[in-house]
Simulated assay, not measured.
Amino acid sequence: MSDLIFGISVGIMHLPQGMAYALLAWLPPVFGLYTSLYPTLICFFFGTSRHISIGTFAVLSIMVGSVTERLAPDVDFLKLNGTNVTAEVDVAARNSYRVQVAAATTLLCGLIQVLLGVVKFGLVGTYLSEPLVRACTTAAALHDVVAQLKSIFGVSPARFNGLLSLVYTLKDICLLLPQTHLPTLVASLVSLVLQIAAKELNPFLSPRLPVPIPVELITIMAATLISNCGHLNRNYSIQVVGEIPSGRQHLGRCK
């Protein structure tokens, strides 16, 4: 029963998580669902360790996003609208090219990893000190947190690359705080408070409950229902993922 509940909870949780990580990679949200499914199937047949967690990862999504956004910026896909006066972004062409860039980046990284595995380069990891590993983990967490701040406050900071880009991004977000979208901030804070409170209560309630309280699942379901029934996107301009197409998408070639 515990395995069944665990599988259902992780499967449901992976739906919004995969779409969120796709947005971090500057890709259409539906592709986050694809990357949550296919790697797991491949690992099912070829994986050699039950401890390996396969799926989307926030830091990797941010790194891929830095490539896709840099090689396929919005300014390269501007087109004149019906009035031939102002320009708008050709979203379909932009998304198609970004998917191709992300796929090429992923394939290249996979080939490099296979090559490093063939030469047994993983041996170098045994010489990495514990402080170095902890520093890398902390840095990854900081990148993840800063990447989420713009969504929490509902602002649009500039995109920075290169050395100290994280510091410049954080500075730009602080400068944009007066423009914070209050409904988005309230929704974010309510979700955070509920999840933190449940994480603190679960250890005390676990001896009395057969399974931990699935607060993440409850939060997602409640937020989805409230957003849909209350029309938060229309009434309060709270951004939502939008329509998710069903089936496998074929974007075709991008000229």
Rank of each mutant, 00 (worst) to 15 (best):
S2K: 14
S2F: 15
S2Y: 14
S2A: 13
S2Q: 13
F6I: 06
M13V: 09
L15C: 06
P16Y: 09
G18S: 02
M19K: 05
A20M: 05
L24R: 08
L24Q: 13
L27G: 07
P29S: 04
G32W: 04
T35R: 07
Y38W: 13
T40F: 09
L41H: 04
I42P: 10
I42G: 13
F45G: 00
F46Q: 01
F46A: 12
G47S: 10
S49I: 02
R50V: 12
S53V: 11
S61T: 05
V64R: 08
G65Y: 00
S66D: 03
A72Q: 02
A72G: 09
D74P: 04
D74A: 13
D74M: 07
V75H: 10
D76W: 10
L78V: 05
L80K: 13
N81P: 09
G82I: 07
T83A: 12
T83D: 13
T86K: 06
N95R: 11
Y97R: 13
R98D: 08
V101M: 08
V101I: 15
A102P: 02
A103W: 15
T105S: 15
T106I: 08
T106Y: 05
T106N: 05
L107W: 01
G110D: 12
I112W: 03
Q113A: 14
L116M: 14
V119M: 10
V119R: 12
G122K: 01
L123G: 15
V124R: 06
V124D: 03
G125S: 08
Y127I: 02
S129W: 01
S129C: 04
E130Y: 14
P131N: 07
P131T: 06
L132Y: 03
T137G: 12
A139T: 10
A139D: 00
A141E: 03
L142F: 11
V145N: 03
V146I: 14
A147E: 06
K150Q: 15
K150V: 03
S151E: 09
F153Q: 10
V155L: 02
V155R: 02
P157A: 08
A158Q: 14
F160K: 07
N161R: 13
L163N: 05
L163D: 13
S165P: 04
V167M: 02
Y168P: 00
K171A: 13
C174D: 06
L175V: 01
L176C: 01
L177N: 00
P178V: 08
Q179W: 04
P183F: 02
A187M: 15
L189C: 12
L192D: 00
L194Y: 03
K199H: 06
L201H: 01
N202V: 05
F204K: 14
L205S: 00
P212A: 08
I213G: 07
I213D: 00
V215I: 15
E216S: 02
L217T: 09
L217S: 05
I218Q: 12
I220P: 01
A223Y: 02
L225E: 10
C229F: 14
C229G: 04
R234S: 11
N235M: 00
N235C: 12
Y236E: 00
V240C: 11
V241L: 10
G242M: 11
I244T: 10
P245K: 09
P245W: 11
S246H: 09
G247S: 11
R248E: 07
H250G: 12
G252H: 13
